[in-house]
Nucleic acid binder design. Structure first.
Length: 287
DNA sequence: GCTTGCGCCTGAATGC
DNA sequence: TGCATTCAGGCGCAAG
């Protein structure tokens, strides 16, 4: 599934191919992909047709294309979304949901098998579009303030992984990066946020940034000029994952068998020795 | 106000 | 073989 690095790859691809291009035609093939555009599909088409894309931006896993009308097309890829650029006339991929024809013979297709993703048009409001005003900065942007994140985290009364997945606290962290960064930090997913030490939070933030940067380096190498593929899976499984999906395999640090717990309607992978819930990261390091 | 749980959605994989 | 069930998870919303 597309995670922050894959979304950044898409952003770069879109920036390269459609900035300065004018939307000439739009075909809505699946209205559910526009369900968050409350005024309806026709209003979406009316607001975008004829407009010129002036930029492509991202926060966490949200993308938005700024238009020459003080509005933006806001998009989220959900679990299975792709933004595919091709020449006009190219065969339509399965699960194509919305198609945009630009000048210069460029076609952009929003392809999304599971329809968890969506597109909408929104007014610009300050630095981000209105619908994502509540989304916190992601750890790779300069606006991310670690001290503020730490203070807000410590005021929460919940488990650390649940907090990491809360996009209003820190954005861009999904199930996989949460598990990987917690493993690197030797912190159990259910550790209470209130019990965390400042040094543990700093270490955790550093590990989130590192794992995302490493993934971005790999994901950024795998798309060619006219095809912006965000399947995510290809770039994703090329990466070395220490715990995610590694149930039953030995921990690469200590050899203990990696466990999987059901948590928040999804999986949590962890090493029961390196990430002993009763111990701090420091104690887990020096067992 | 804050925390927690659910529904959305498809198709591959698994179970009987 | 074929049908039914399980699983994947980001997000918004509603209930607690």
């Amino acid at each position: 599934m597309p995670e922050l690095p894959e979304v950044e790859v898409v952003r770069r691809g879109l920036e390269q191919h459609i900035v300065g291009r004018q939307v000439q035609d739009i075909r809505v093939l699946e209205i559910r992909s526009l369900r968050r555009h409350i005024a309806g599909p026709q209003d979406f088409v009316d607001r975008v047709t004829g407009r010129v894309v002036t930029g492509v931006r991202r926060r966490g896993k949200f993308l938005w294309m700024t238009l020459d009308s003080s509005e933006s097309i806001v998009g989220h890829l959900g679990m299975s979304g792709q933004m595919l650029i091709s020449a006009v006339g190219t065969a339509r991929p399965r699960h194509s949901r919305v198609e945009f024809t630009f000048d210069e013979g460029i076609e952009l297709r929003f392809v999304d098998q599971r329809i968890f993703g969506y597109l909408m048009v929104s007014e610009d409001s300050g630095s981000v579009p209105l619908p994502i005003g509540h989304i916190a900065p992601d750890p790779l942007e300069t606006a991310f303030d670690e001290a503020e994140f730490a203070a807000r985290l410590l005021s929460k009364k919940t488990g650390i992984k649940r907090a990491l997945l809360d996009q209003s606290l820190i954005s861009g962290v999904g199930n996989i990066y949460a598990d990987e960064s917690l493993w690197r930090s030797r912190v159990h997913y259910a550790r209470s946020t209130r019990d965390l030490q400042r040094v543990e939070i700093a270490e955790l933030v550093g590990n989130i940034q590192n794992v995302m940067r490493e993934a971005l380096e790999q994901g950024g190498t795998s798309f060619d000029a006219l095809y912006v593929n965000v399947n995510g899976q290809s770039g994703y499984f090329d990466r070395s994952l220490a715990v995610y999906g590694q149930e039953g395999m030995p921990c690469e640090r200590c050899g203990t068998t990696i466990q999987r717990d059901r948590f928040m309607n999804r999986s949590s992978f962890f090493c029961p020795r390196c990430q002993d819930p009763q111990r701090s990261a420091h104690d887990n390091l020096h067992r």
